[in-house]
């Protein structure tokens, strides 16, 4: 896979979302990014048909975190055969909400002068990690204690070879609230806040000389925990 890391938040590798053969010659590929607190869908539209394409527009179905286009799909000139245009579509997270399976699924409709086409894609929920997600230390301790252990999920993150995990995670708005070293284990206590106000608390355990990290996640909405652990994996390995 591509290395989607610039300075800042993790961005996944670009993938083809809609194949030309299924969309009368329109190929759509793309990725997502969070830049300066704004979620963006970076889309490439390629015309693989023999006629010009125009009148592009986009709509999302309701989704788990209320992601919705915050503006029009700006394709300013008609797209000739074999041409590609790159568009950055800003997204808001205040649209209509409906729980999807998987939770991070997005159903998209794109229209042009020829027809309407549909595709699904998945986004890393780290797109939804906000910049003010560092929890107050006292609140962290109280919340950690308050969330029942039934709501705790544990994950192994294998083959990590990093010496600045904390900095790397902070680039994607995973904040270290406290760090302690106990018997050659670094215990990092971390907080994340999602755009919908859900807080996620985590303990990342890094043993000296052991490339396998242990991540424990506590959240009042435990269904998000596995998606958070996927983000740790992607961020730490990219």
């Amino acid at each position: 896979g591509g290395v989607g890391m610039t300075s800042g938040s993790y961005s996944p590798p670009r993938v083809v979302w809609l194949q030309a053969m299924k969309a009368k010659g329109l190929e759509i590929s793309g990725t997502f990014a969070r830049r300066g607190g704004v979620i963006q869908m970076d889309v490439s539209l390629t015309n693989k048909a023999m006629s010009v394409m125009s009148d592009f527009a986009v709509q999302f179905n309701k989704n788990s975190f209320g992601m919705a286009p915050a503006g029009p799909l700006q394709v300013l000139t008609p797209l000739g055969p074999n041409q590609t245009v790159e568009v950055s579509l800003p997204l808001s997270s205040t649209g209509p909400v409906m729980k999807m399976e998987p939770l991070n699924n997005l159903q998209v409709a794109v229209k042009n002068n020829i027809d309407v086409f549909y595709f699904s894609c998945q986004y890393p929920i780290s797109l939804l990690f906000v910049e003010d997600g560092k929890m107050d230390r006292q609140v962290f301790l109280a919340t950690w204690k308050d969330i029942p252990s039934d709501n705790e999920a544990q994950f192994q993150i294998k083959d990590c070879h990093l010496n600045a995990a904390s900095n790397k995670l902070q680039g994607s708005n995973i904040f270290t609230v406290a760090k302690r070293t106990v018997e050659a284990q670094d215990m990092l206590y971390q907080s994340i806040k999602l755009t919908n106000g859900i807080w996620v608390l985590a303990e990342l355990r890094i043993q000296t000389g052991n490339p396998n990290y242990t991540l424990s996640v506590k959240c009042r909405a435990p269904e998000v925990s596995q998606y958070v652990s996927q983000c740790y994996e992607l961020i730490l390995k990219n």
Partner: peptide, 20 residues
């Protein structure tokens, strides 16, 4: 004093989690 208390509480949490 509060800060000292919080430092101490995190140390206890880490100890307790590392050696349950």
């Amino acid at each position: 004093e509060l800060e000292d208390g919080l430092d101490e509480a995190f140390s206890r949490l880490a100890e307790c989690r590392a050696n349950p």
